[in-house]
Design a protein around this nucleic acid. Sequence first.
DNA 1: CATGATTTTGAGAGTTACTTTCATTTCATG
DNA 2: CATGAAATGAAAGTAACTCTCAAAATCATG
Lengths: 213, 213
Amino acid sequence: MTRMTAARSPYDPADRPRLGLRERKKIKTREAIRAATYALVREQGYDATTIEQIAERAEVSPSTVFRYFPTKEDIVLTDEYDPLMLEELRARPEDEPWMDSLRHVMRKALDLSEQEDPEVLRLRAQLGYQVPAIRSRYFESMTETGRLLRRALAERTGRDPESLEVRVSAMALIGGMMEVSMYWAENGFEGELRDLMERALDVMEHGPAAENP
Amino acid sequence: MTRMTAARSPYDPADRPRLGLRERKKIKTREAIRAATYALVREQGYDATTIEQIAERAEVSPSTVFRYFPTKEDIVLTDEYDPLMLEELRARPEDEPWMDSLRHVMRKALDLSEQEDPEVLRLRAQLGYQVPAIRSRYFESMTETGRLLRRALAERTGRDPESLEVRVSAMALIGGMMEVSMYWAENGFEGELRDLMERALDVMEHGPAAENP
DNA sequence: CATGATTTTGAGAGTTACTTTCATTTCATG
DNA sequence: CATGAAATGAAAGTAACTCTCAAAATCATG
């Protein structure tokens, strides 16, 4: 069926093989659960896939599934790109306009994710579009990203990260980005996500009512 | 305990007493369920409140509760301001700048809601802030509002409501507005929500990186 | 007002995500 | 290999939702 790529995460265990057997096993289990979930969801759809089936295919008990992921949605969505993003944002030159920095970082993040596992990027977007529960969880995780965004934005512009202005700016960006993903899925993944994101950032840079070509 | 205001909804039944007994009873049941839920949630918190308790206090069966509201979160959140908002937006003069129209309409909506039932406005914001499930549903409902927003924005600016640009603009606004509500609840409802909203719209009008006082 | 059609309700059983508890197994370490 | 710590599985429990069906309330008629 589908090629079972290992989906090397940003903190790939293979980079530091000096991990105890226990740790390595945990990582394997985690990925087994995720792989089983992706496969089943592709075969039967999200709602039709039960935790029991996932557990069975991943060869663990249902209890273990919940030990690794708090909710079913998390199995599909969890990743850890956020810290990387913050780091990248901070690494951009101080005097670069904020929105340019953001453009660079987003492009980089999307490129990376696309190259690591293009299927997963699409599957997530599609599930986010189709399944309300996933969309919700998706939004929650983007809200966390929003917290990073406001920290970075505050640092860059010398404002208080907890001020209404900064918080609203960050979440407006998040809202816009979320919509890009929905749009992409809704239109059958037509075009490069990277380009759509770029257009979205252009729009948001100048406010919603500005003239766009 | 708390005064059990009837919370006259925008389409108040009392305005048209010419409804069959059946219809009137349905509206009563609906409001009984909501009132019971609000009361219980205030007493015990959201999670501790079960559908069974709600049903008992509203003097209906649990099945009936689910017949009136698809999910527990909906009992707290459902309202029907959206169509009104669209109407108001359309009623604004054609040549008024879009963001000014939005400011007017939002102010009006918030004033209305505050005057109809200030408690509910606060309770919702607070639950949205504290309870992830509610926040999710809150966001979903704002997404629907976003669809209206993009229609109105498209009409006003002569663009395609399904274009990426319009959709992103609308959802960015929604994201920003959502954050206003969170901010308000998080800071103990300090200040007028109306004023916070105004400030948020100012921010979003000019883009996230613009200088604000 | 009686009667039959239609709508609404409640009772009950079933599904599934998630929780909690506890005994058993698996690994790490001296 | 022995001992302690961590990970697992089995099992029972909770609560949100779904489905089905029969009883009850309302409505539209003659």
